[in-house]
Design a protein around this nucleic acid. Structure first.
Lengths: 261, 261
DNA sequence: CATTTGGTTTCCGCCCAGTGGAAGACAGTA
DNA sequence: TACTGTCTTCCACTGGGCGGAAACCAAATG
C-alpha cells in the first residue's frame, strides 16, 4: 500500500523544520539515518527533503557523506537582531578588556535566558553558556537580574513552575527565590555562586530599554574570585548605561526576533 | 477553478526557503504582502506558510503585524561552524586590541568572501562588510589573499569571469590581477586602497589549515593610514599563526557548513 | 458617516506533489 | 562469499497543499 500509512495532519513545513532542529540536539555531523530518527520521519522522506535542503545550502554534506547545518542558514540568521548585537558588541568587548573576565549579554526567551553575545579570552574557563545557548533563569546571574526587573506576572508565572536543580547550590525554593529577587531589585545587581556549574560564579546588572528590562549584562569568573566579584560593579553599571544609550533609538520590535507572549 | 492554476514542479520546501530568503534582500520587518512579492508566491499560500513558520519561531511577528526572521533561526544557526568561530574569536579580538583597528576573518564561499567574524571598537569606520555578509574577492584584501593562495583552478576560474567594479579604484583587469596575486603569494600579504569603498583600505594575511588556504585575516583602516598599513604586518602574521595552531585539531569538514565545489 | 484604500484572514473543492514501503545499490566487515 | 548497516531509487496511491475569490479589518479620505 504505497503512501497509505502516512501520518495525517503533518505538514511538509513541519517536516522540514523538524529536520533542521534535529541538528540541535546532537553535536557534530549527522548521517541520514540519524536525521530520520531525530526528526521522526521515514528514511525515504528524510532523504528527499534533506537533498533539497542541501541544494539550497541550508544543509551541507561533508566528504564522509554526513550532513550538518549549512552556512546559508547561518548567513541568513545573521540578520536576526543584528541591530542590537551590532550596537552592543563593542561595549561588551569593553567590559571584557576592562575586567579581563568572560563578559556576556543575554535576553529572556520564554522561561529561559538566551545568550546573544559572549566575549572571552584565550584562558580556559569552565563554561556552561554559549552564544545561542539557553539556561534556566533562576540559576544564572543574568537570568536572575532579568527576572527581578521583569514585569510582575512574568515573575510569578516563573516561580510557579518546577525549578530545575542544576548543581547542589542552585536555589530552587520559590519563596526564598522571590525574596532574593526582591533584594536584587533593591541592590541593582545579581550574583550566583556555583549555581549553574561548579567552579564558576557570576555577577550581572540589568540593561533597560524604553523603561522595561531589555537584557542582562554579566561576568563569569572562577569561583576562587567569588568573594571579590563586586569590585567589577562600577564597570558593569557603566557599560550597561552605555549600551542603554546606544540602543534607545532602536525600535523595540526590531531588537530581536522574539515573540513576546 | 480552485487549485487549478498552480505552478507545477515547485516543491513546498522551496517555497518555505524562498520565504526565509525574502528577508535577506530588504532590511527590516516585512508585511505579508512584501513577503509574497519577495518570494514570488500567491498571497494565501504565503499566509499559510508564514503562519506555520511563526508558530515554530522561525519568524516572529511584531506589534505592528509585520514579520521578521525569528530568534529560533538564529539560535539554530549558531551551531554552524561553531568550532571554528569559537576557536578563532579570541585571537581576532587580540588582533583588535593590539592594533585598535577593525579586525576581520573571512572564508571563501563560491566566488565571494564571506565574513565570519568582525571585531570593531566604538569609533565609527566606513564599513562595507559585516558578519554574514559577502563581497567580491578581487576587491578586498582578505579576498585577494585567499584567492592568491587558493588552488590553481579556483584562481583561473575566478579570473575568467566578469570582475565587478565596486569603486573607481577596483582592479578589474584579469591580467594585471593575476600578476598582483602572484606578488601577494610572494610577499605573503595583500592590501587594498579604496577598492571596496572610498575612505577605507585594508591589509590581510592568509590562515592555513592542513596545508590549504583556510581563511583570510585582515584589518580595515581609514584611507589616511593607508601608507603605514604594513606596520601591522608582524601582529597579523603572529595572530594568523596562533589561529592556525588553535584550529589544526579541528577536522576540516566540521569547520564550516560550506559545500566546497 | 459612507467610501476608498491597502492590507490580512478565511474558505473550499480540485489535483498533483508528497509519500513511504520495498527493492536495489553500495561499502565496509567478518 | 555472505552479511550488515547505510544510502538511493522507484512508483502507485492519496490527502495536504493549493490559490482564486470573497470576506474581513483598520486607517485614511471625502
Amino acid at each position: 500500500m504505497a503512501g497509505g500509512n502516512r501520518e495525517p495532519g503533518r505538514t511538509v513545513t513541519s517536516k522540514v523544520l523538524a529536520i533542521l532542529e534535529a541538528f540541535e540536539q546532537s553535536r557534530g555531523a549527522l548521517s541520514l539515518t540519524d536525521i530520520a530518527e531525530g526528526s521522526g520521519l521515514p528514511l525515504s522522506t528524510t532523504h528527499r527533503l534533506v537533498a533539497e535542503l542541501t541544494d539550497w545550502g541550508f544543509l551541507s554534506r561533508s566528504a564522509t557523506g554526513r550532513y550538518q547545518l549549512g552556512i546559508r542558514l547561518w548567513e541568513l540568521a545573521q540578520n536576526t537582531g543584528r541591530q542590537l548585537r551590532d550596537a552592543a558588541r563593542p561595549f561588551v568587548q569593553d567590559l571584557f578588556s576592562l575586567t579581563g573576565e568572560t563578559a556576556q549579554l543575554a535576553v529572556r526567551a520564554g522561561h529561559e535566558v538566551l545568550y546573544i553575545e559572549r566575549i572571552y579570552g584565550t584562558k580556559r574557563v569552565p563554561r556552561a553558556s554559549r552564544v545561542g545557548g539557553r539556561l534556566p533563569m533562576h540559576a544564572t546571574a543574568v537570568g536572575k537580574v532579568i527576572l527581578a526587573f521583569e514585569e510582575e506576572w512574568v515573575r510569578t508565572a516563573y516561580l510557579n513552575r518546577d525549578l530545575e536543580q542544576t548543581t547542589p547550590h542552585t536555589h530552587t525554593n520559590p519563596r526564598r527565590l522571590a525574596e532574593e529577587l526582591e533584594q536584587i531589585r533593591e541592590q541593582g545587581y545579581a550574583t550566583t555562586l556555583e549555581e549553574v556549574r561548579l567552579g564558576s560564579c557570576s555577577i550581572a546588572v540589568p540593561v533597560f530599554h524604553t523603561g522595561r528590562i531589555g537584557a542582562g549584562l554579566g561576568l563569569v569568573l572562577a569561583s576562587a574570585q567569588g568573594a571579590s566579584m563586586t569590585r567589577h560593579l562600577p564597570v558593569l553599571l557603566g557599560v550597561s548605561a552605555q549600551i542603554e544609550r546606544a540602543t534607545v533609538h532602536i525600535p523595540l520590535e526590531s531588537l530581536l526576533g522574539i515573540n513576546r507572549r
